[in-house]
Write a protein that binds this DNA or RNA. Structure first.
Lengths: 145, 145
DNA sequence: TTTCTTTCGTCAGATTATCTGACCACTAGC
DNA sequence: GCTAGTGGTCAGATAATCTGACGAAAGAAA
């Protein structure tokens, strides 16, 4: 028998993280339809989380997001079709394509960031500012540099 | 212009939560093949997170996991095929089925809980015991009662 | 400068994990 | 005993990933 009692399955750290993430994602992505972006799905976040304002190559994006380049290509193509990014041939490399935000895509990125910040503020109001700050600090220590 | 500067997309609270969850899930589920359960995928976790030792009905499981009963049925059928759960007609209700762990399923549940506890301990070693405790506390305040 | 190797992206095809709608069997409430 | 509601399945769709094979371009080596 283990010294420490095993946690309930719903109370493992992983389950708690998943739940918090799920709730936050729902707040952010759930707000998009009413804000004029009903076509955006959570999977698109993989692009917005990793595409810097100056643009990036497809393969860079795929690596940053930790997925196959084919998978990233599928998301990027979708966002291009929806008018949020465009993919232009890279002048510096004839094989490569540069993924860039359109004006609409930049507005969406800003909206996502604003909604995220607001959701974090609401969370802080629920659990306490101090508590929320330590939560963020702990998570930041786990994130890659 | 917003008073607070917008966060970088990779530093929203959601992105941080997602990253931490992803890392933890990888530790736990990544260990399964070497421990004799190569057939278990992350989606199966929806069952193990919500199926109590005494069993439950399919619809209860679906509601607890926040998914359609058809989706839960797909996961349960898969785990039944793999010998981790079995689904028997409910003696108290002729329409219903009771989902129960097999002996193998119970061992897997225990392993998952143990791996989760170990991953949490390693995380605490990385960021500090105090920090990990406050992380858990904050997340628990966000979880449903 | 020709060749070899690696990298960038696409094509084709598969699988997993979800959903919705329609339905049947059974229970429960009047 | 009807009628309404619930538990579960069937059928079909879609989203979001993957792997393998490949062509074109770049970079390294000869």
């Amino acid at each position: 028998m283990p010294r420490t009692p095993l946690p309930e399955a719903r109370r493992t750290l992983g389950a708690l993280l998943r739940h918090a993430y799920e709730a936050l994602a729902e707040e952010v992505y759930g707000a998009l339809p009413a804000r004029g972006f009903p076509e955006i799905r959570r999977a698109h976040g993989a692009v917005f989380r990793h595409l810097p304002p100056a643009g990036a190559r497809l393969t860079e994006l795929a690596i940053a997001a930790g997925m196959a380049k084919q998978s990233m290509a599928y998301l990027v193509e979708d966002l291009a079709r929806l008018g949020h990014v465009e993919s232009r041939p890279d002048p510096e490399d004839g094989r490569a394509r540069r993924i860039l935000y359109t004006a609409r895509g930049r507005r969406l990125l800003e909206l996502l960031l604003r909604l995220s910040a607001e959701a974090e503020l609401r969370l802080a109001a629920r659990i306490g500012i101090e508590e929320a700050a330590t939560l963020r600090r702990a998570l930041e220590r786990l994130a890659p540099a």
